[in-house]
Design a binder for these strands. Structure first.
Length: 412
DNA sequence: TCTGGGGTCCTAGGACCC
DNA sequence: TCTGGGGTCCTAGGACCC
């Protein structure tokens, strides 16, 4: 059996950990730039607030209820997540950390003791970290996921879908709630009168393979209790790196866009460095407000002659892309940089006529070392070093309770 | 006024090769 | 009118996830 351990309202729960005064209050966490709502405590959910809703549309409602908003504090969430995962790892022979707030665990206990094991996990995480979690158990990841959804509704936060219960339970689950079935596939299934998880489970393999995808076929097998979705290997390097962010206020000037793009590139390159890789393809995109008329979105890619992780060269490529995109007179809301064709540094193929450029390697090395010693922003490319007028809006940020000496919570 | 960011995987179709 | 067969690789774009 497989268990899915899922933190309840994770971001909101993290905010509550160091604010006992908020224990029973509605809490919501906002996206970057304090734009929309990405997480809510149970109390906020009960108010009928929807995930993904823009803040300005529910501001009044939140005010009426004395709820509290927070800007997203990823430093805090990632740190608490690491602690949750470390505790979970002690309770199982195998753990797959699936996302910042979820992990699949293999269930080692005999069936008769599984319930105690699950409840013990909930207790451990709650006592050590103050984070509420739910545990769902099933014969496959997809079944464990479905069980976890039901666990959230149960008072103890635990639900095991035993094989004997599968038919009854799956008949109650609408097809669009199944992990891996998004809006588009749900629509298609509905049009064929496949309404529940049980209906999908009983479809013909070839039919599914032919009219949908292999992924859906695997989902179907999983619903039948046959594990078919493999673990993702956390060691494997990223295949694409994206760094993009909306501006806190619109940008008109090309020069400002250039600074933003240069700065996004230096973030992307840092991710590249952290996995010791090089990139061979740079893409830049810019866009105006997509909710307004005359929406403009355009991207431009440039292939590099040789794979590179040399920041100045990559910034130059990005700025060159920007030249193909920029139109004067528009108000830009967002830009981004994508790196593709990523290869490990060790196996990079140079073309016949180029030589490995040692001085570049040394510059990158010095930058890396200085960042390690003095912190991330000690060196910035000049192209991005001016004032960041467009920088992210985070007006409601909570302290970095666990990762910054100055911001440790005080006990009086 | 204000509407997130960062990923993965799959498929179709074109270019190219023998 | 007739116009091989079987591959690989790459890219764009869709779908889905948290």
């Amino acid at each position: 059996m497989i268990a899915l351990v899922d933190c309840n309202s994770f971001y909101a729960s993290c905010e509550k950990v160091f604010r006992p005064d908020l224990q029973d209050k509605p809490v919501v966490v906002l996206s970057n730039n304090d734009g929309c709502i990405v997480a809510m405590s149970k109390e906020a959910k009960d108010l009928g607030i929807k995930r993904g809703a823009p803040l300005f549309k529910c501001r009044q409602q939140l005010k009426d209820q004395e709820s509290l908003c927070f800007s997203s504090n990823y430093t805090l969430y990632q740190d608490l997540s690491n602690r949750v995962m470390a505790l979970l790892a002690r309770e199982t022979s195998h753990i797959e950390v699936y996302s910042i707030d979820e992990a699949f665990l293999s269930v080692d206990s005999p069936p008769s003791a599984t319930r105690e094991w699950g409840l013990e996990i909930i207790k451990i995480i709650s006592q050590n970290l103050g984070i509420p979690v739910s545990v769902g158990v099933g014969r496959s990841k997809t079944l464990a996921k479905a069980a976890a959804t039901l666990a959230k509704k149960s008072p103890q936060g635990y639900f095991a879908m035993l094989p004997s219960m599968e038919e009854r339970v799956l008949k109650e689950i609408p097809v669009h709630k199944i992990w891996g079935i998004g809006p588009s596939k749900a629509d298609y299934l509905l049009s064929r009168s496949i309404l529940t998880a049980w209906d999908l489970r009983n479809m013909d393999d070839w039919d599914v393979k032919k009219t949908m995808t292999l992924v859906t076929l695997k989902t179907l097998w999983e619903l039948r209790g046959k594990p078919s979705i493999e673990d993702e290997d956390p060691q494997t390097d990223k295949k694409g790196i994206l760094s993009s962010l909306g501006f806190s206020s619109p940008i008109k000037e090309k020069q400002e866009l250039q600074r933003a793009v240069a700065s996004y590139m230096s973030r992307a390159v840092r991710k590249l460095w952290s996995q010791n890789s090089q990139t061979s393809n740079v893409t830049v995109f810019i866009m105006t407000n997509r909710f307004k008329e005359n929406y403009y979105f355009k991207e431009y890619s440039q292939r590099l002659e040789n794979p590179s992780s040399y920041l100045p060269e990559l910034i130059k490529a990005a700025l060159n892309c920007l030249e193909h995109l920029f139109i004067r007179g528009l108000e830009y809301h967002k830009a981004g940089v994508l790196l593709h064709g990523i290869t490990p540094e060790a196996s990079v193929q140079l073309d016949l006529f180029s030589e490995r450029n040692n001085s570049r390697d040394r510059i990158s090395l010095v930058v890396k070392e200085m960042e390690q010693r003095y912190g991330r922003d000690i060196l910035k490319p000049l192209a991005s070093a001016m004032e960041d007028r467009w920088a992210m809006k985070r007006e409601l940020l909570s302290p970095a309770y666990t990762t910054c000496w100055e911001e440790l919570p005080r006990v009086y």
